[in-house]
Design a protein around this nucleic acid. Structure first.
Length: 563
RNA sequence: GCCCCCGUAGUUCAAUGGAUAGAACGAGGGACUUCUAAUCCCCAAAUAGGGGUUCGAUUCCUCUCGGGGGCACCA
């Protein structure tokens, strides 16, 4: 609908002014509003209110008959009220589009790679991985709905000094004659302990570095240990991913790029982009105002910087990616600035730039970063379990009818959806202080609110025996409000895709659910006395529930039919 | 020292440079013989501070204060 309004205004304004059309949130300002008069006022040096009146008159003269109920010029703004007839026509359009409503072809012909998840092998998943994973999965879905060819990409950190540390610690224990259990928890403990001691004792650091290098050069025992740790970690990651409903199209760990690293460094050196400095190979980035990028250590070992260059090259050349989105925490800001600058220098970038989709840190109750190195750590598996348990408790109390396997399934969905929604409903690149209470809130603007709204609509549809036909007009304010909200869905998705903002969609769904609940309370559906009204409202319920479900699914949330 | 992110009701969050800064939780008041009250309706409450840019600034620039993160061989 907004496109129609825009073209009507454009016709009246006559030139391609940069006006905007918005949907005012406050009542009394119409369904749509434009600031076009301000732009003309600047060009013609006339008061905005005068321009607004002129535009309004022109629109009244040219607009299709019966489209607007009212047009009002107010302090330079022009407000539009769309007629009931136009709203009803819009509903028919949305209803027949069904779940295709909201899709677009904006991204047709473009391939986007979304990197997210990316666990650190050897360390258990922590809460930060949840953020990357669910933001990434939501963006993946949203971009897909806009016609992009999207590849979800997992980039596990399976090849670094952390292994040297773990291997060194493991061997040390073994030498001391102690038995070491081969589990993720045990390796984490070894890692944290050794890391702490390393700070006091530089000799230990040397040993770890040596073990890392041996691993990278293919030492038999080290590779065997590495493989063991790798399998344990990837097993856990796969399990958690399944729980979260996350799937990856491609998963290449850092070790995958091992064969390319030497060439990357040689090429950069040969082209004079990289230089040797203090025994290491670096790429100076003074022109960009950035610190140098170290791509090879003085002992000859490669770093994640080198791997990231190789990975980007691989994606751009082999996968012909037009766009790469890195869903990685804000703390790596500098790393990505450097990486992108280097890629530009190496000439790997084509039309689109890679984008670092940042998110804030998860802080502990002391407002400090939760660092695995320092042994501070919130286990993702634990958070998920807690969420599911809590929702099972609430379900038993509020919906005692739900039992057995349905109870199990429903509490899993509610718990996980709540975790996801809690994160997806905020844009904040600011940090989040971890708080169980808040993380598992089921009230207000939360996943259960949306799921409950959906389940109630489904319940109406289940109980209805009437044929669904759209024969009556929608006249109530509650109905019109919902239709206008449904009409907004395509814009919302476009905005979310263009800005990589899942929260735009989350907040929209909340507003949609609010409008639906308002309707639910004021307009009876099955109880409507006229059968034509009943069947129309059923059609209305069907369409609204389809869009709500679609939006939730795009965020990566599952719905339940009964709650 | 330099760079980046952030500062909005008591709390947690919204607001492509637009009008009277929106919600939720919490506080107060109301609505279940009627499709599920995990709901709905009403009510009080906020832009850290100083300059600047302009028709208009929570948003852009600048300074100050406050919180967090990063800055050569970890990822």
């Amino acid at each position: 609908m907004i496109e129609e309004i825009r073209s009507v205004i454009l016709k009246a304004v006559g030139k391609d002014a940069e006006f905007e059309v918005s949907r005012p949130k406050i009542s009394g300002r119409g369904h749509f509003s434009t600031n076009a008069a301000f732009f003309l006022s600047k060009i013609n040096s006339t008061p905005p209110s005068e321009e607004a009146e002129k535009i309004k008159d022109k629109i009244l003269a040219t607009a299709p008959a019966g489209y607007f109920e009212k047009i009002e010029a107010a302090g330079g703004f022009i407000n539009f009220w769309v007629s009931e007839k136009a709203i009803n026509a819009e509903f028919k359009k949305i209803s027949s589009a069904g779940s295709a409503w909201g899709g677009s072809k904006d991204g047709a012909g473009q391939k986007a790679i979304v990197e997210y998840g990316s666990p650190n092998i050897g360390k258990p998943l922590h809460f930060g991985h949840l953020r990357s994973t669910i933001i990434g999965q939501a963006l993946y879905n949203i971009l897909k709905s806009q016609g992009y060819k999207v590849v979800s990409w997992n980039h596990p950190g399976d090849w670094g000094k952390q292994f040297g540390i773990m291997i060194a610690a493991y061997k040390e224990k073994q030498r001391a004659g102690k038995k070491v259990e081969l589990s993720i928890g045990e390796f984490l403990k070894l890692y944290v302990e050794y890391n702490a001691r390393m700070k006091e004792n530089p000799r230990l650091e040397e040993v770890a570095r040596e073990e890392t290098k041996k691993l990278q050069y293919g030492d038999g025992e080290n590779v065997r240990l590495w493989k063991k740790i790798y399998d344990l970690s990837m097993g856990e990651f796969a399990r958690v991913s399944r729980q979260l409903g996350v799937r990856f199209d491609v998963s290449h760990g850092e070790s995958f790029y091992k064969p390319f690293l030497k060439r990357i460094v040689e090429e950069a050196l040969a082209r004079g982009i990289a230089i040797k400095s203090q025994g290491a190979v670096i790429i100076p980035l003074e022109e960009e105002g950035l610190p140098p990028f170290i791509i090879q250590k003085s002992d000859g070992a490669y770093l994640y910087t080198t791997t990231d260059i190789a990975a980007a090259k691989y994606r751009l050349e082999k996968f012909k990616a037009d766009k790469i989105l890195y869903i990685v925490g804000d703390e790596q800001y500098l790393h990505f600035e450097q990486l992108f600058a280097v890629l530009r220098r190496l000439g790997y970038l084509t039309s689109q730039n890679p984008v670092h989709i940042k998110f804030g840190l998860i802080l502990g109750s002391d407002s400090k970063k939760l660092s695995t190195r320092a042994g501070k750590h919130i286990s993702l598996a634990e958070v998920i379990e807690e969420a599911i348990n809590k929702s099972a408790g609430v379900l038993k109390e509020k919906a005692p009818d739900i039992k057995g396997s349905e109870l199990e399934k429903t509490s899993r969905i509610i718990g996980i959806d709540s975790l996801k929604y809690n994160d997806l409903s905020q844009n904040r690149s600011s940090n989040i202080v971890f708080d169980w209470e808040k993380m598992l809130s089921f009230e207000g603007n939360s996943a259960p609110y949306l799921l409950y709204t959906y389940a109630r609509l489904r319940s109406i549809l289940r109980k209805s025996k009437s044929v669904i036909r759209i024969s009556a007009d929608f006249k109530s304010e509650a109905e019109k409000r919902v239709i206008m909200k449904l009409d907004e869905f395509p814009e919302t998705l476009r905005l979310a895709a263009d800005n990589y903002y899942p929260h735009t969609l989350a907040l929209y769904l909340y507003e949609l659910a609010e409008a639906i609940n308002n309707f639910y309370h004021t307009e009876p559906v099955l109880g409507a006395t006229e059968s034509s009204v009943r069947s129309s409202r059923l059609a209305f319920v069907r369409t609204a529930s389809a869009i709500l479900k679609k939006g939730l699914n795009l965020l990566g949330l599952e719905t339940v039919e009964r709650l």
